[in-house]
Simulated scan of single mutants.
Amino acid sequence: MSTASITRTWEILPARGYSTAWVDFAPDSLSARGRAVGLLPEPYWVSYELETTGGYVTTRLGVSVETATSTESLELRHDGEGRWTVNGAERPDLDGALDCDLGLCPLTNTMPVLRHALHRKPGPGPELFTMAWVSVPELTVSLNRQTYTHLARAEHGARIRYRSGDFQSDIEVDDRGMVLDYPSLATALTR
């Protein structure tokens, strides 16, 4: 994959909102910034910056959320050795996670897809991931286990089954591993 810059906007269904990401892809990493607006559970704005290192491993996610009554921010960092901090405080409960997963943000599905080339070919079976999951708009961080399984090649990429707990959805991604359609969560408006 060559170096490229992509802008993608999604309609975010559960929040009755929209999210836009500006992503710079390098051969083995990406950096991005994004903005989102949602109406549910109350109107809010989200701004974020995401950085990854080799293998698309998250190194930093900075997020701020503004509502009518407050502005909150979060700084999530991964040291490259498997340890995380949240706003400077060590979080051993997140140890072992390689990725962040920002709630209602389709962009953060990209890193595990790219790391295992799930958008290009079937793997040996389901790929299991441990994520540092960030809820929106609350900005709480918790450990979340997820499974991604390549189902089939599609016209513009692939279909991948996402599973976390009892939730499951068959996601369509493009040739860069970015979400095009995530039933019940998001639909890309720009490609």
Rank of each mutant, 00 (worst) to 15 (best):
T108K: 07
H119Y: 13
W133N: 12
T149R: 01
Q146C: 03
R163K: 09
S135G: 14
L143D: 12
Q146A: 04
G125D: 00
G96Q: 05
Y148E: 01
A152R: 11
T130F: 06
K121W: 08
P122C: 12
P92S: 02
P122K: 15
L139S: 03
H116C: 08
G165Q: 02
R120C: 05
A154P: 01
D101C: 06
G125W: 00
R163M: 04
S164M: 04
P112V: 04
P106I: 13
T130P: 04
V136R: 07
R159L: 13
P106T: 10
S142D: 13
L94Q: 03
V141R: 03
L118T: 01
R145H: 14
S142W: 07
G103Q: 14
D95H: 10
L139A: 04
R159W: 13
V136A: 05
L143N: 13
H116W: 12
A154Q: 03
V136P: 12
D101Y: 02
A89Y: 09
T140A: 11
S142I: 07
M131V: 11
G96K: 04
Q168S: 15
T140W: 12
A152E: 13
G103W: 10
A97Y: 02
A132E: 09
F129E: 11
H150E: 00
R120N: 04
L139T: 02
R91L: 08
S164P: 05
R91M: 14
N109E: 05
L98R: 14
A152K: 06
D95T: 10
G157D: 02
L98M: 11
C100I: 14
P122A: 15
D95F: 03
Y162H: 06
M111Q: 15
R115K: 15
E90V: 14
E155I: 00
L151F: 09
L107I: 10
T147R: 15
G165H: 02
D93K: 01
H150G: 00
T147K: 10
Q168E: 15
C105P: 08
A97D: 04
F129G: 05
